[in-house]
Amino acid sequence: MVDFNVRLGLTPTDLELREIQTKRPAEFEALSADDSPELRLVEAQFAGKIVSSRLFRGEKTITVKKDKIVAIAKALRDDQETAYNYLSDLTCVDLLKVNKTEEEPRFEVIYNLYSLATFERLRLKAQVTEDDPTIDTVESVWPNANWNEREVFDMFGITFNNHSDLRRILMPDDWVGNPLRKDYPLGGEEVEFTYNVRGR
């Protein structure tokens, strides 16, 4: 791949500001099962699938292993107490440049859930490794995951098993690479003029 950063003449202050900066430590705490029906539910039905749970600024996050994600999603939707019937957002984060241990996987697929019954929010995360970037689709639980998962597939290159229509959505069909991965350079797009490719 061309070294786009050099080619575009971008300075370290633009791209490496993150590395040279001092970083503030974490301030989150563990989520307690007493005030979180979601954690109780997942713990009861899917023991051993929970990786971690956090409470940060009043926002609940539960990280799980990816293999039972559809069942967990379904349980969270159908349970009377949690009733997360609205998939507010589905996205992904590439943890390549975050300080983490070797064992921690590179990707986290993030489900921002909302309940139209209790008006509560929950962030459900599923860990996806770099070697096996696949996860089951939650289309059967929340149909609007369709486009959101296509976007994650397009931007991060994560394949969703059993997805009904897994194609690129925002980038052109013949695009190479996944733009929102952290090893994909900023400004990596070649400027296209009509006749700048030989033989075209």
């Binding site: 500001l17 993150r18 900066q21 970083k23 503030r24 430590p25 974490a26 507010s88 957002d89 996205t91 984060v93 590439d94 440049k97 975050v98 300080n99 993030i110 921002n112």
Partner: peptide, 20 residues
């Protein structure tokens, strides 16, 4: 519902921003 999801890695630059 217009939402912003921000993942901070402790630096002055947002590590991940998702626009809903």
């Amino acid at each position: 519902e217009k939402g912003y999801y921000i993942y901070s890695d402790g630096s002055g630059i947002p590590y991940r921003v998702k626009i809903k």
